[in-house]
Nucleic acid binder design. Sequence first.
DNA 1: AAGGTGACTAACA
DNA 2: ATGTTAGCCACCT
Length: 114
Amino acid sequence: MSDWYTRVYEMVKKVPHGSVATYGQIAALLSSPRAARTVGTALRHLPEGSDVPWHRVINSTGAISIQNFDHPAEEQVNLLMAEGIVVKRSDLGYAVDLSKYLWRKETIDRERPL
DNA sequence: AAGGTGACTAACA
DNA sequence: ATGTTAGCCACCT
């Protein structure tokens, strides 16, 4: 496991229950704001039994990005709704209200103060 | 080592 | 406001 992947996983673990984060946001928190794609790549390689809340990571438009891997998009939606997050279903896919559920970095400051 | 790939994004038409 | 296009960065072949 590459160090980068590990960092992505550790960061995703910090996303609080009931909130969501974007790939770009995770990348930015890892000091690589342009590495959003690699964040997704890291989650794609995520082991099955991991305790990483991968379902809380979505794209910048608030939609579910995954198409179909080990887990279908509906599985992610299911997990999100289980946390009390309202997921709107569209003909094109699923979407979450980012302005309402997007993770705020202040949460990190609360967990990891300087 | 070099080029291709993708759970992304922001910019354009 | 939707649909494409071109950068991006770490990983894989």
